[in-house]
Write a protein that binds this DNA or RNA. Structure first.
Lengths: 276, 276
DNA sequence: CGGCACTTTGACAGTCATCAATTACGGTGG
DNA sequence: CCACCGTAATTGATGACTGTCAAAGTGCCG
């Protein structure tokens, strides 16, 4: 990539990886032996992009995944009428571009919401690395599978929740993700525009604005431009969970009677292959 | 798995794999050399489940992916209030359970919509197989990535489309998937209930019913119970594409001016790592 | 034949999208 | 330093789409 005005390539990448706060969970990390694969140098590189700069555009030929090191990124699809549908926001440590694996071209676009540090993970060598490192493969699989889970959770939220509940869920989600970065869970920043939030939550811009105002007048949050202070994490959580609750993963769901055939109720376990 | 009344284990799996119509794209398939990995026998096994039988339930410990060989399957999340949010329908050749990779327990439930043939792909040996077979890994990655793409497309459809447009999209989607199986694209069957469709499309049951009736009175489709005949694929496609169009992947999107900083407009390409 | 679940149809209201206009903010240029 | 401009955000009024409640109709299988 050219060293244009708004993109800076990190010079000493090697050193940068070791000091990276996300090195512990990095896809390209060492395997359990502790040695770093020699191919790493060809896999990863970092750079800095300014707000509004695209990391890739829909239609560009796919060749890499990307990880946010600092700042924030949004991904979106472009509709024929010109406006965009936001498909995700990515905070430091999160990987985007996963939807374009095994396609010729990127199926979505990615743009920096702020001045951001971005790690490039070239896919071809990454794939080779997966062959030699079970740990790397497991990590990549985990990211892919996790992305599917997130989509499905969003599905639930958008399906049966009101505008207020969606916003509460969104704020709680950002809060949770920011707190895993060591930041305060009650002091969150929203680098994206209201339009972006609306697109993501399937709400009109005006509704987003109104909901934020409403939550503020209820004393649940305090909004100041792109800075939101959650005054009652408890209330916000209850609001996000109300009506259509997303049961936490790993918890046994209540076993209701099979909705179809009665004679299926004796099917106690799930399918297991017979051992030949 | 026990040979209970509604689950039949295929005896001669080995033979079954060779005669399987999906063998060409099977995850467990031979590598390019043409030889079948010796570990395959421990990876895959088939069985038949009756309508209403669960393949797995949310909370069950994760140990396998599943492929539909015949029939149909739906996956859903269970809300705390008891009703379910459908997250996907799966036709022959399609794989489900992908959202639970790298988690202890399944995060969703899967139930047969019809008497269905199901292939069990034990994950632990599958993962080992991925280490030795680049082709298998690429296939699994492709399935995972493709699932993410589908979720994102659904996102768009549900975000900015009316009830009629959603239904048109849904019918076109089923039509397309059925036609890749060699079936007629205009004669589709809907093994799921209206409630399921509504859950998936984020519509009330009544709305689903009304929309189907409306499309029928418009002469676009002809509904008879769970059998739908598409009388005008053209009109249905136009309806599905209207207003919020999902631009096909691989097509260059119009390059609009960057919505943020003006000085980002000269960023022509996407980020590429510098070659050290 | 009868019970049951699914589907359809109708009436009504509510939430949210749309249209419109004002306000606030941030960067630019004088 | 301040005024200016464009974009983003807010607020208000209105209406439509769709969810909800209710009830009748249909098909399926015991």
């Amino acid at each position: 990539m050219r060293n244009s005005s708004n993109v800076v390539t990190l010079k000493d990448r090697q050193q940068n990886c070791e000091s990276c706060r996300f090195y512990r969970d990095c896809l390209v990390k060492t395997d359990s032996s502790g040695r770093r694969p020699g191919s790493q140098a060809t896999v990863v590189s970092g750079c800095v992009v300014r707000r509004g700069a695209h990391i890739f555009r829909m239609g560009d030929s796919f060749d890499a995944l990307y990880m946010v090191r600092s700042g924030a990124v949004k991904t979106y699809w472009l509709a024929s009428n010109g406006d965009q549908q936001v498909t995700g926001f990515y905070l430091p440590g999160e990987i985007f571009g996963l939807d374009s694996i095994s396609t010729e071209n990127y199926v979505s676009s990615a743009v920096a919401l702020d001045t951001s540090g971005i790690c490039t993970l070239l896919y071809a060598p990454l794939r080779r690395l997966c062959q030699s490192s079970a740990e790397t493969m497991a990590r990549l699989m985990g990211r892919l599978s996790g992305r599917i889970r997130e989509s499905e959770e969003a599905f639930i939220v958008l399906g049966h929740k009101s505008a207020d509940e969606r916003m509460a869920w969104f704020l709680m989600d950002i809060s949770r993700r920011q707190s895993t970065l060591g930041l305060s869970p009650s002091e969150i920043s929203l680098p994206m525009t209201r339009t972006d939030i609306g697109s993501y939550l399937m709400l009109a811009v005006e509704t987003v604005s109104r909901v934020l105002t409403r939550l503020q007048s209820n004393g649940i949050i305090q909004v100041r431009r792109n800075q939101v202070r959650i005054k009652s994490l408890d209330k916000l959580a209850r609001l996000a969970e109300s009506s259509a609750n997303t049961a936490p993963a790993g918890v046994h769901a209540p076993r209701r009677a099979a909705p179809y055939w009665g004679d299926c109720r004796d099917l106690t376990g799930h399918l297991r292959p017979t051992t030949h």
